[in-house]
């Protein structure tokens, strides 16, 4: 079916449906491949793999073969991977040690708590700011003043304010995440076409209905974009917080390994951060796609 109205003969405009209804099962019969199978037969996976191999090769060349001064102290891929998957790791961290998972688990827990808090506060606040001008007039100047303050500048206050290291780290992570969520939720409401509000008002919607049926669904796409960005900021802030005040966690592990001259562990923790960061982002995207079916189905 075409999106382009000009491609449709007027008198038979409802015909594409009839065609689609009969054509779809046939199409499905001779092309039963899902998106994954389609992707596997395209050149994309090969290019992906060669990209990764190329990166590893370059890394190997720079650190192990050429030993350039800049890369002199870095462990090469073989050394790192060997350590990462060793049953008996030299520095005590590999996929076979409990400590590795303790660091991952604690980092994830902190990010999860901070992200949850940032979402629970940032989304409603942002939606309300976009919806009610008076509320925006009160809150916007304060938030706009606080927003640009780099998260690292909050470290002393965070340590002074909160009891214990745990709450300070979660607070710092929350800060990083909060403003991105807030700003995008606010923009989400701003992006809703005025005619939707007008149409709903004509159809008899009350204020509370306008919020539930127009503001909330209309802002969703922006909200989820914001959540993905805020998740990125959360990991960024977490690592900084853990380096400064942590006792466990991947950020702490990186800094601790640096001080203890256990360089392969730094690389292991960094890659681990990359993996959990991507996974958390992926989860948000999947949840978003599930909730915003009307946007996904555009075809």
């Amino acid at each position: 079916m075409t999106d382009n109205p000009s491609g449709i003969i007027p008198a038979v405009e409802s015909l594409p449906l009839a065609e689609a209804a009969t054509a779809e099962p046939q199409a499905a019969a001779h092309r039963p491949r899902g998106p994954l199978a389609k992707w596997l037969t395209s050149p994309a996976p090969w290019l992906n793999v060669s990209g990764i191999l190329g990166f590893l090769l370059l890394w190997h060349l720079l650190t192990t073969v050429l030993r350039l001064p800049l890369f002199d102290k870095l462990p090469g891929p073989l050394e790192t991977v060997g350590e990462w998957f060793s049953r008996n790791p030299t520095y005590g961290i590999s996929v076979f040690t409990v400590e590795y998972y303790q660091h991952i688990g604690l980092s994830c827990l902190r990010v999860f708590l901070a992200f949850l808090l940032a979402t629970a506060l940032g989304v409603p606040l942002g939606l309300l700011m976009g919806w009610k001008k008076t509320f925006c007039d009160y809150t916007f100047p304060v938030l706009e003043l606080l927003r640009p303050i780099p998260m690292l500048a909050w470290v002393p206050l965070a340590i002074l304010m909160w009891p214990g290291r745990e709450t300070s780290i979660v607070f710092l992570t929350f800060l990083g995440s909060f403003f991105a969520t807030l700003l995008n939720s606010w923009l989400g409401v701003k992006s809703i076409d005025r005619s939707y509000f007008r149409a709903a008002a004509s159809l008899g919607a009350s204020e509370s209905l306008l919020f539930r049926k127009i503001v909330w669904p209309g802002a969703m796409p922006f909200v989820f974009t914001g959540l993905q960005i805020s998740m990125g900021y959360a990991w960024f802030s977490l690592v900084a917080g853990e380096m400064l005040a942590g006792e466990f966690g991947l950020g702490y592990l990186i800094w601790d390994s640096y001080i203890l001259v256990q360089y392969p562990v730094i690389i292991i923790a960094m890659f681990t951060l990359g993996v959990v960061g991507s996974l958390s982002s992926l989860i948000i995207r999947l949840v978003g796609n599930l909730l915003i079916k009307w946007k996904v189905k555009e075809a």
């Binding site: 076409d193 005619s195 939707y196 007008r198 149409a199 709903a200 004509s202 159809l203 008899g204 919607a205 009350s206 209905l209 049926k213 127009i214 669904p217 209309g218 969703m220 915003i292 009307w294 946007k295």
Partner: peptide, 26 residues
């Protein structure tokens, strides 16, 4: 009731839900 220049159907509702919107909320 207004029929707008470019469509003002709510993009997050199906055709049926869009049409049902007015009678339902009232």
């Amino acid at each position: 009731l207004v029929v707008f220049q470019e469509t003002a159907l709510f993009p997050w509702l199906t055709t049926f839900e869009n049409v049902a919107y007015g009678p339902k909320i009232r």
